[in-house]
Design a binder for these strands. Structure first.
Lengths: 106, 106
DNA sequence: ATATCATTTGGCTATATTGCCAAATGCGCA
DNA sequence: TGCGCATTTGGCAATATAGCCAAATGATAT
């Protein structure tokens, strides 16, 4: 793996890393039906404003979401909605894993 | 988010986290064309055997790959190949990000 | 049985991530 | 202009992750 390829894999990993957190995953799924205000995330998740804000920054810096400021509020929306398609495969992995564990108990 | 849902998001995040590392991503893509021996990864990546082995353990525990021991060697293969479909979307995110940055420079 | 090879595991240090608090910012309204 | 609200930023302590070395394991071949 040369330097160029290495940087490319690091960039790819950064995108997946942005998704790889329960709170951020929840936010991304929430955005499936369109734009939402930061305040909604804070209300529904039991976290500090600052914590949510930092999670949103991670998603924004990865290029997954974008923010739209309107009035006092900030709304976030998915910039690249194809990430939603990951979910069914992630669930397939979890199911396969559950089956394997069940098989070991037999 | 109740306790049950929380655990579910943690499990999903675990799968994505397993993919969210340059070396592991490289390994997963390498497995696109089928089974490969651990020794091949060690040869092609400039890492210690133990480092590669731990990365493989992360992928295995997440349910993404499975190991097949034959003779002295251990071969790994994708257990749930749909993860390969993530790549094009990850690249779409990167491209969208590149465009945004380019736009800012104008 | 023993030596050998491929891989895994344990242990360690360095680095990265998370989540809270407090303080700073930015916008709209009185 | 100056206040108040929504959000972001800075800073810190706790925890998690990465990668190296050395030692342990497990199968094969002698």
């Amino acid at each position: 793996m040369d330097e160029r390829e290495k940087r490319r894999y690091e960039a790819k990993a950064k995108v997946l890393k942005a998704l790889a957190h329960p709170t951020r995953l929840w936010i991304v799924e929430k955005l499936a039906d369109g734009e939402h205000c930061v305040c909604e995330f804070v209300n529904e998740l039991e976290h500090d404003f600052s914590t949510i804000s930092k999670h949103l920054a991670v998603l924004r810096e990865a290029g997954i979401v974008q923010d739209n400021k309107r009035g006092k509020q900030v709304f976030y929306e998915l910039k690249v909605p194809c990430v939603l398609r990951f979910m069914s495969c992630v669930e397939a992995v979890m199911e396969s894993q559950a089956m394997t564990h069940a098989a070991l108990l037999e």
